Structures are given as C-alpha cells and as structure tokens.
Simulated scan of single mutants.
Amino acid sequence: MSLTHLNRRGEACMVDVTDKSVTERSARAESCVQMSTDAFEQMLAGQNKKGDVLATARIAGIQAAKKTADLIPLCHPLALTKVQLDFVLERETLSVRILSFCRLAGRTGVEMEALTAASVAALTIYDMCKAVDPAMVIGPTRLLEKSGGKLGHWRRAPDLEEEYW
C-alpha cells in the first residue's frame, strides 16, 4: 500500500483530489470530558465564572471544524454545509460526551473536521472548568461514523457506542 501524502521522492504533499467525484460526505465523532463533582455541578447550574460552558464549547467546536485545514497539515480546506455539536451530560460518570457531525458535498471526506470539532470543544470545556478541576480527563476522542466517497459507509462497532443520532 502506498502512502497518499508522500510524493515519489518521499516528501510530504497534499493529495490531488481534482479528479475525484463530488459526493455527499459526512462524519460523526466524539470526545468526552470527565470532571469532579464540583466542576460538573457548577457547569450544570450555569455558575462557571467564565460563562456558559456548553454554549462556548459549541461555538468553539464549530469554529474549529471550519479551521481544520489551518490546524492539520495537508488537510484540504472544505466548504462545510453543516457542523453540529451536541452534548450528553452523564451524571453517573461526571462527564460530558461531545458529539460532532459534519457534512458537505465535495471531493474529500470530513472526518478530520468532525474530530477537530469534538477535540476543540473538549479543550474549551477543560479551559473553562480548569480553575475548579485541573485534573479533568479528556478522551476518548474517536471517529464514530463516516459516509461518502469510494469507501462508502463505515461505522464503529455498535457495542462501542450508544446511539444518540
């Protein structure tokens, strides 16, 4: 198998997608932030001193998806048509599950945009809550599903995730 991001001389390069067909493509990803009871309760009650944690994380995730090509070397800049972030608050584990969804009609997939959105939303939650709990844990961050392109549809094994979409 040849590596697509290397030219014949072994140098890094952006993949040429000019001749690929434009198809509808989408991807879902997740990340999770686990925190202390105090940080979780403050966030739920809207008492975080920096403001609305989840609203800020949602905006940060959307902005991050739009900036993925600026952050990840060799990623193509994409004209995203949808970026959505949802949060599942899990009181039993004192965690926030971040679910991202990205879609477009294009020549390359949106997996990196969905992963970047979930990651930056998690980092934003950490940043806003770190004064209360610097020991928060982020992860796992992972791709849940992708569709479109020549590989078609892929989904993480169902026993590894709950259905929220």
Rank of each mutant, 00 (worst) to 15 (best):
M43T: 12
Y164V: 13
H153Q: 06
A117D: 02
E11H: 12
P77T: 10
L3P: 02
M136H: 03
A121G: 07
D16E: 10
C13S: 14
P73K: 14
M136D: 08
A114M: 11
A57H: 10
G109P: 00
N48E: 10
G148E: 00
D159T: 11
E145W: 06
A60H: 12
P77M: 11
P140A: 02
A118W: 06
E24C: 04
T56S: 15
M1C: 01
G61T: 09
L89E: 12
A135T: 13
R8L: 08
S2N: 14
A29P: 02
C13N: 15
P77K: 12
F40T: 09
Q63Y: 14
V96A: 02
G139L: 10
E111C: 06
A60P: 12
R28W: 02
D86L: 04
A12Y: 05
R103Y: 10
E163V: 13
E11G: 07
V15A: 00
M128R: 09
G149T: 03
G139D: 10
A157R: 09
F101D: 05
H76P: 05
L71Q: 08
A55V: 13
E24F: 11
L6N: 09
A117P: 04
L115A: 01
A131N: 12
K50H: 11
H5R: 07
S21G: 01
T108C: 12
Q34S: 10
D19T: 09
A131P: 08
D159E: 15
G149D: 05
D133W: 06
S31K: 03
Y126N: 01
G106I: 03
P140H: 03
V96N: 02
V137T: 13
T116I: 10
L160F: 05
R155Q: 14
E145G: 05
M35I: 07
Q63T: 15
Y126C: 01
M1K: 04
V33S: 00
E41C: 09
E163C: 09
R9K: 13
S26L: 11
D38F: 06
A105W: 06
L80T: 11
R91D: 11
K150W: 01
V120I: 15
G109A: 08
E111P: 02
T93H: 07
V33R: 00
K66E: 14
L89I: 10
T141L: 08
H5E: 03
Y164T: 11
V17Q: 09
F101Q: 11
L78S: 07
A131R: 09
C102T: 15
G109E: 00
T18Q: 10
Y164P: 03
S147A: 13
R25C: 02
A55D: 15
C75P: 08
D70K: 13
M14K: 00
V15Y: 00
R142C: 08
C13I: 14
S100K: 04
A105L: 07
